[in-house]
């Protein structure tokens, strides 16, 4: 595990979307992020996993300032990003970049690859000359393993996998520090997934990048990430080193998630490990622990008192009252 300095510190980050009824009156709020705290260390890959709708993508977009946060703070390079003006955020974005689920879709269909790749530099590096920019663009497309001849093509003339590479190259031209990757492998067949993951690992080494890897694909997360944060309904329920979480999960929700990974020759998903029902409506959360309605371990205390993230075994945190004694019940 890479143990670098903290580059991105998130504290009590909240994002609430107001809900309106048919007449436009406010009738409540959807707590997409409800007090999320974690650190990202230099050079590591931190995986963010959870069911769809748990707030993974909202987390990424809120960190990027695409959604303004409702509360909390995000420390990055000595500044609190929450509440930063749009102009100031724009400058931060050269260091903190968001990679869309399909980076290929982030290319303007009417722009040639060369122009799309040069655009981040035009925006953030007005000091560069045209020739320097062209050189940086060529370096970027080489680093994602595409020939320079592709620079003269339009996005629709590339394959899906090539588009993704170009999308990545576009972000790398700025030499960012932290990349937020939002489901970078979903919708790809396994062989392409593998090449993209290899590419991501190679680029991290080459450019000294730190990744926040948002995914619901636990197999990929297990292979790639140094640490994992498990999210449930806008909160982190467990966070820690990947191998410890996968070997010995200390939150009932993590247990059910991991039990859902199909393994060749592994044990089948049995009744007592399957997740019961649907997650509750995030607009009307249960009292206490928000997982208790689906939890086999739920006790009276879970309804009365919301469990907080606490250190279980030196470096791994779980938000369950019974984290240490899950096996005994």
């Amino acid at each position: 595990m890479t143990a670098g300095e903290t580059v991105l510190a998130v504290r009590d980050l909240a994002k609430h979307f107001p809900l309106h009824d048919a007449l436009g009156r406010r009738k409540g709020e959807l707590r997409a992020l409800d007090g999320v705290s974690f650190d990202v260390r230099e050079g590591e890959i931190l995986g963010i996993v959870g069911e769809s709708g748990c707030g993974k993508s909202t987390l990424g977009k809120t960190l990027m300032g695409l959604h303004p946060a409702t509360g909390g703070r995000v420390d990055f390079e000595g500044r609190d990003l929450v509440g930063l003006s749009k102009g100031a955020y724009r400058r931060i974005r050269s260091r903190l970049q968001y990679v869309y689920q399909d980076p290929g879709a982030s290319l303007d269909p009417r722009w040639k690859i060369a122009s799309s790749l040069a655009e981040p530099l035009v925006v953030h590096r007005p000091d560069m000359s045209k020739a320097q920019r062209a050189e940086a663009v060529r370096a970027a497309i080489r680093s994602v393993g595409l020939p320079e001849g592709h620079l003269g093509l339009f996005p629709h003339e590339l394959s899906g996998g090539q588009q993704r590479r170009v999308g990545l190259a576009r972000i790398l031209t700025l030499h960012p520090k932290v990349l937020i990757l939002d489901e970078p492998t979903s919708g790809l067949d396994v062989s392409v997934q593998a090449t993209i993951l290899k590419l991501l690992q190679g680029l991290r080494a080459e450019y000294g990048l730190t990744y926040l890897f948002i995914s619901h694909d636990l197999a990929v997360v297990r292979m790639l990430c140094d640490r994992v944060a498990v999210m449930y309904l806008g909160k982190i329920v467990e966070i820690g080193p990947t191998e410890r979480i996968f070997a010995d999960p200390r939150h009932p929700y993590t247990r059910s998630l991991l039990a859902a990974i199909p393994e060749p020759g592994g044990r089948r998903i049995t009744e007592d490990f399957a997740l019961k029902g649907e997650p509750p409506n995030p607009a009307s959360l249960p009292s206490g622990c928000r997982f208790r309605t689906r939890c086999d371990w739920a006790a009276d205390r879970c309804a009365a008192e919301e469990p907080l993230l606490r250190d279980i075994d030196g470096g791994r945190f779980s938000a369950c009252h019974f984290a240490e004694t899950l096996d005994e019940r």
């Binding site: 968001y98 303007d108 009417r110 925006v123």
Partner: peptide
């Protein structure tokens, strides 16, 4: 709502740049 417009914004492009170079041509 298109990803490439949001992505270009996420990249740090100004609204003016977005309108003149990306939205109007499209």
């Amino acid at each position: 709502n298109e990803v490439f417009i949001e992505a270009t914004e996420a990249l740090g492009a100004s609204p003016w740049r977005l309108i003149v170079l990306h939205i109007l041509p499209n």
